[in-house]
Simulated assay, not measured.
Amino acid sequence: MSFKSLIAAGSLGLAALAMSTVASAEEVFDAPVAARQASETGLQTAIFAGGCFWGIEGIFSHTRGVTSAVSGYHGGTANTANYRQVTTGLTDHAESVRVTYDPSIVRYDQLLQILFSVGADPTLHNRQGPDRGAHYRTAIVPTTTEQRAVATAYLRQMGRSGVWDDPIRARIEDYRRFYPAEDYHQDYMLNNPNSGYIRRWDAPKVEALRENFPGLYRSRFRTG
Rank of each mutant, 00 (worst) to 15 (best):
E57H: 06
E57Q: 15
I59G: 13
I59V: 12
F60V: 00
F60Q: 00
F60C: 00
S61T: 12
S61E: 13
S61P: 00
H62Q: 05
H62V: 01
H62R: 08
H62L: 01
T63N: 01
T63F: 04
T63V: 15
R64E: 13
G65R: 06
V66P: 00
V66C: 06
V66G: 00
V66R: 00
V66S: 04
V66K: 00
T67I: 11
S68F: 09
S68Y: 11
S68M: 10
S68G: 13
S68V: 04
A69H: 11
V70C: 07
V70A: 10
V70I: 15
V70G: 01
V70H: 04
S71Y: 12
S71I: 00
S71P: 13
S71T: 14
G72F: 10
G72P: 11
G72M: 05
G72W: 02
G72Y: 05
G72E: 12
Y73D: 11
H74A: 14
G75A: 11
G75F: 03
G76Y: 05
G76M: 01
A78L: 15
A78E: 15
A78C: 08
N79A: 09
N79S: 12
T80V: 11
T80D: 13
T80A: 14
A81F: 14
N82Q: 04
N82F: 04
Y83D: 04
Y83Q: 07
Y83H: 14
R84F: 08
R84W: 09
R84P: 00
Q85R: 07
Q85I: 07
Q85Y: 06
Q85A: 06
V86H: 08
V86M: 02
T87G: 06
T87A: 10
T88Y: 07
T88H: 12
T88G: 05
G89L: 06
G89M: 06
G89E: 02
L90M: 11
L90W: 09
T91N: 04
T91V: 03
T91A: 05
D92L: 11
D92V: 01
D92G: 15
H93E: 01
H93R: 03
H93P: 11
A94I: 00
A94G: 05
E95H: 08
E95V: 02
E95F: 09
S96D: 03
S96C: 06
S96W: 07
S96F: 13
S96V: 07
V97C: 07
T100I: 01
T100S: 08
T100P: 02
T100Q: 12
Y101F: 15
Y101H: 13
